[in-house]
Design a protein around this nucleic acid. Sequence first.
DNA 1: ACAAAAGTGTTTAGTGTACACCCATGC
DNA 2: GCATGGGTGTACACTAAACACTTTTGT
Lengths: 248, 248
Amino acid sequence: MCTVANNNPSTTRPHSRVEPLNEPDNVLPGLSIDNLIFGLDHGQLKIMLVKHNVGPGKGKWALPGGFIKQNENLRDAAARLLEELTGVRDLYLEQLKTFGRVDRFPNERVVTIAYYALVSAENYTLVAGRNTSDAMWFDAKDLPELIYDHSEIVDHGLNFLRHKVCHEPIGFNLLPEKFTLLQLQELYEAILDVKLDKPNFRRKMMKMNLLAPCNEKQKGVPHRAANLYRFDSAAYERLTDKGFSFEF
Amino acid sequence: MCTVANNNPSTTRPHSRVEPLNEPDNVLPGLSIDNLIFGLDHGQLKIMLVKHNVGPGKGKWALPGGFIKQNENLRDAAARLLEELTGVRDLYLEQLKTFGRVDRFPNERVVTIAYYALVSAENYTLVAGRNTSDAMWFDAKDLPELIYDHSEIVDHGLNFLRHKVCHEPIGFNLLPEKFTLLQLQELYEAILDVKLDKPNFRRKMMKMNLLAPCNEKQKGVPHRAANLYRFDSAAYERLTDKGFSFEF
DNA sequence: ACAAAAGTGTTTAGTGTACACCCATGC
DNA sequence: GCATGGGTGTACACTAAACACTTTTGT
C-alpha cells in the first residue's frame, strides 16, 4: 500500500546490558510506543501483529511499536512506527494507556505508551517493514503468544474498546466508508459479544441522526439490497455541541 | 496527617543542560509522574497543588509529581511522590494519560505520566515536603497559573472526571465515608455544573442498591436530620458481575 | 410558628423490548 | 415460489422529568 522508510541503522545504546535492543541513539531512552490496531473483517474483530526478526523478541509476535525520536511528539511517533512496520498510514491514533511494570521488558527498564486505532481491516494491506519479517491480522479471539506484556495491553485494549464503543461513536471507524445497518449491527455484536434485535437496533441508530444516507444500495447480494449509509461526523459535532451524548 | 520521608539528596543528572532538574540519578531519565488529586470541600471541587521551591519552576504552583525510581512500578512512584510532596497517602491512584509534547518541559525532553485520585478534601491535611514550600487545595474553577503543561493536564482531567462520574460510581470517593443524599447530589451538581431535581435524584440512586444505610442520622443541623449512607462496594461488585452498569 | 431541609406521591411523556409482520430480490 | 435479509408497526412495561405535597427538627 505504501513504501517503507528504512533510515535507522541498528546501533546499540552504550548502556544496553545483555540482549541488544537495536535502539538507535537518537531516541528517548527507556520509553517506547506500542500500537494496538483493531480491524473488522467479515464481521470478525481482528488485531494487527508483527513478527520481530531482531532484538530480544526475535521470532515472536508483537504489537507494532518501537522508540520515540528526540524531536517527535508521541502520536507522531506512533504513526511513524506503525507505517514503518506495517505500511499502514493515516490512522487516527489515540492514547490507550502507559505500561511500566518494572520487569515488563527483559534486562532493561522500558516503559511503553500504548496507542490504539480502529480501521476497516479490508482496506489495509499489511507490508512487513524494518526489523519485522511479517505483519498480519489475527482474530482477536485467537491470538498467538505475544512478546513482553503485550497480551496484557491487548486485554486492556479489548475491555476499553467494549466500554468505549457504547459511549462514543468510534465503532464506525471499523467499517468501510459506506456500510449497511446490518454491518453496523454485526460490528456491535462482534465487539460486545451479544445478539441484538434488528428492528430496535435500526431505530436506535436512525434516531441519533448520525447516519447520512448515501442514496445508494448494496450490490451483488442474493437478497433485497440494503441502503448504504455514511457516518455523518459533522452532524455528530453539531449534536455534541448541543449536549448530545452518544449512548448505545 | 503523616510524616514525610526526605531521603533523596538533590543531586543533578550529568547531562542536564541549562536549568538543573534536581533529578536524583537512580531515577528513569526523561520520564516523570504528575498527580491530579481531586477533592470535595463544602460542595466545591478542589485540586491539590504544590509550590516548587527548587528546579526550573521555582516559585510556581504545580501538580505534585516527580521522577520514577529504577525499581519502582508506576503507581507506586505516584503514591510515593504524592506522600513526599503533600503528606497524603493511601489514595487509590489511577492512570489518567501520558503527556509528552516535545516542548512541554524546558531544556529537556521529559514525558510525564499523569495519575489521578478522588478524595474527601476535608479528611486530608496537606504538609509541604521535599522540594516544595507549600501544598494546598485550590478551587477547580479558580486555579493559579501552573507550571509547564499542567493546566492542560488539569483540563483533560476535569473533562475525564465529568465523563467518568456518569459511567462509574467513583464520585463516592469524594465524600466522607458516611454521607447524605443531598451531599451526593451536590457532588454531582458541582462536577457536572448542573442543577438536579431532589426527589428524582434520590430515587435514581436508591434504586441502584449501591447505598447502604448506616442507620444513623446527621447531627447538629438546624433542620430535620438526614439519613446517612455508605457506598456499598461489595454490592457494586455483585451487581457488575451480573452485568449491571452504573449510568448516571 | 417558622424556616429549612428531609422525604413521598402522582402525573405525564417518552424509551426500550419483544415480536409479528410485509417487502424486495436472486436463484 | 421460496429463502434471505431489508425494513415497518405496534403493544406493553418501564423510566425519567416535573412538581405538588407531607414530615421532621432546631430556633
